[in-house]
């Protein structure tokens, strides 16, 4: 397979394509799965982002988040 005689290495090459394929299919099938965050979660996110920005400012002078 693929010009690779060693079973283990050929299997790795094959699995490489399979796990990528599975991940791609998963991403496509679940493309719209998962709901948008509700108002309560949005508020939590705002708070989280505000605190995260403060932490970012500690790290760099530019304060770029």
């Amino acid at each position: 397979m693929f010009g690779l005689e060693d079973f283990s290495v050929a299997l790795a090459y094959l699995l490489l394509l399979i796990v990528t394929g599975v991940s791609v299919i998963y991403g496509i099938r679940k493309w719209n799965a998962g709901k948008e965050p509700g108002p309560e979660e949005l508020e939590e996110e705002k708070k989280w982002m505000k605190h995260n920005l403060e932490l970012e400012e500690e790290v760099s002078d530019g304060g770029v988040s």
């Binding site: 796990v19 991940s23 791609v24 991403g27 679940k30 998962g34």
Partner: peptide
């Protein structure tokens, strides 16, 4: 993980991330 908005973005990122790793590390 904490900087994404919802699980949906993580699901979608599985697709793009796997191709990214295949093409860079592979």
């Amino acid at each position: 993980y904490m900087t994404v908005r919802s699980n949906r973005e993580l699901n979608r990122a599985v697709l793009i991330g796997s191709v990214f790793i295949l093409l860079t590390v592979g």
